[in-house]
């Protein structure tokens, strides 16, 4: 069965290791914070200038001066630190962030990503996405395998304007965990419970490589 958005977030959370500094994008990536395994200490970065993002405030305790990159009211934690936008992207560019999780509209089989613009339709801007994908050493894309029209989002080449080139190495969708091979193509690493390799192959427009026995994801 295909995973829910929460299921995708839950699977990605297993990639987080103790001591990681993590940047979570908007959408499914934000949900990952809810599934960080107990006993693992991580620091969440919000690129508007905060390390140590805490949970939403209690009702009545919202502070207009304290928001995350999604403009949501949040809290700090003991040990949190605030800094300006230049330092925030400085630590991103200098690869101090251990793991970056972000959404995508399309990913190509050579690791290109498109997630900021649909020409003539959606003009929102790239925000920090181009900086993150250009510098992060460890990026996981969290997205649906196919779009609302039923078309694959894992393509031979991106059709939308690119956010970054050859930067994505791992993708988690409702159907599968995939790795982008250095020579190009998606390698099927795990299947969602009960989802067949053929089903995943049909939903993947780019080249898909699968071994004979692709294990199912284990989600606690």
């Amino acid at each position: 069965m295909a995973l829910s958005k929460e299921g995708i977030a839950q699977r990605i959370a297993k990639e987080i290791k103790d001591g990681y500094y993590v940047n979570l994008g908007i959408g499914i990536p934000t949900l990952v914070a809810n599934y960080i395994p107990s006993g693992i200490n991580v620091v969440l970065q919000s690129e508007n200038g905060l390390l140590g993002m805490g949970p939403f405030p209690y009702e009545g305790e919202e502070d207009a001066d304290l928001i995350n990159a999604g403009k949501q009211t949040i809290t700090t934690l003991p040990g949190s630190v605030i800094f300006d936008s230049a330092m925030s992207f400085g630590m991103i560019r200098a690869q101090k962030i251990d793991l970056t999780i972000l959404g995508a509209m399309e990913v190509s089989e050579n690791g290109d990503i498109a997630n900021w613009k649909i020409p003539g339709k959606m003009v929102k801007g790239m925000g920090g996405a181009m900086d993150l994908v250009a510098s992060a050493k460890n990026i996981i894309v969290a997205m649906q395998h196919v779009n609302k029209a039923g078309e694959s989002k894992l393509l031979p080449e991106c059709s939308l304007p690119l956010t970054g080139v050859k930067c994505i190495k791992k993708i988690v969708t409702e159907l599968a965990v995939l790795e982008v091979l250095p020579e190009g193509g998606f390698k099927l690493v795990e299947r969602a419970p009960g989802v067949s390799v053929d089903f995943i192959r049909n939903a993947t427009a780019g080249k898909l490589y699968a071994d004979d026995n692709v294990p199912e994801m284990v989600i606690d």
């Binding site: 300006d84 936008s85 925030s88 991103i92 003009v123 790239m126 925000g127 920090g128 996405a129 250009a134």
Partner: peptide, 14 residues
Amino acid sequence: VELIPQGTLATRCL
């Protein structure tokens, strides 16, 4: 409109 990456915007200020 000129849309530019957020880190580029910040660092051009810097």
